[in-house]
Design a protein around this nucleic acid. Structure first.
Lengths: 141, 141
DNA sequence: TAAAATTTAATTGCATACAATTGAATGAGC
DNA sequence: GCTCATTCAATTGTATGCAATTAAATTTTA
């Protein structure tokens, strides 16, 4: 069976380049994030907090497509590192409120240069990036 | 600062939808792969072996963008599950040769329906899928 | 309002991922 | 042939990820 007509050829699967490219791009973030003491997942948590300052764990999970099994230990670690603080909501004690600390706010100054550096890392034109962005969100919605 | 002009807004980062969409698609594979006793990563290993029958671990790693820290324990598990067998190369004992077993070959019959089912899961036209595919490989190359 | 259903974070168990290191095997250069 | 560098898989340590379960808090419903 030729590769071209083989549905099980890895070269014919959209999923594989998606999986590999995502890992590749996250990996390229590492040299920029490590000096900030952040992993990629912690970085996207911080991006939400730099905008919203205070969110529930459930909101974070929905926004970042992560569940409590991933978030709970990571948020505890980020609290130990002084970036966030965790407390129960007064209104509904089921909810965990995650708030950014002063130290977390200050990290933003160092992080602000990361996106531009990353844009150079990815070998796409601005137009291609827009097309890719829209196609990816079409999958997510 | 408005979200639109904020480079650190998660909505302005190409990386995030890439990261999220990859996880989402892998997750959608699970219902189809679990009955075959495969994880997604094991599935892409099998796809290579269904084509090439016998490869080195280094070749697998290059093809799938995985390193020995990921491959070694996974290949041991797949050997325990009877899908592959592992042996050292006669020519160069540094190399681990991974070969598909009869049981691994037989699994192909069940797996052959997976790609078509997945294509339905992803909400893209055939044309959009081609564009996405090419943009992703542009990142990978 | 008391019981049942729902929502939520936390926990448990399993499976990746990758950086960094190790140690064995091989190859290059002299 | 010997030494040094290189190339491998394996190991170690850290960090996700997610399915499934648990337990507490809240909401719904009879």
């Amino acid at each position: 069976m030729s590769r071209k007509n083989n549905p099980l050829s890895i070269d014919n699967q959209l999923c594989f380049p998606l999986y590999a490219a995502a890992k590749e791009v996250v990996k390229r973030y590492t040299p920029y994030l490590k000096p900030l003491g952040l992993t990629y997942t912690q970085y996207i948590v911080m991006m939400v907090l730099w905008e919203e300052k205070e969110v529930t764990s459930a909101h974070l999970g929905e926004r970042l497509h992560l569940d409590s099994g991933t978030l709970t230990p990571m948020l505890k670690k980020m609290e130990q590192n002084g970036l966030i603080c965790r407390r129960r909501s007064d209104v509904d004690e089921r909810n965990l409120v995650v708030a950014i600390t002063q130290q977390g706010e200050e990290l933003r100054q160092k992080a602000v240069k990361v996106p531009a550096k990353m844009a150079q890392c990815v070998n796409l034109s601005a137009e291609e990036a827009v097309v890719l962005y829209q196609l990816l969100y079409k999958i997510l919605d």
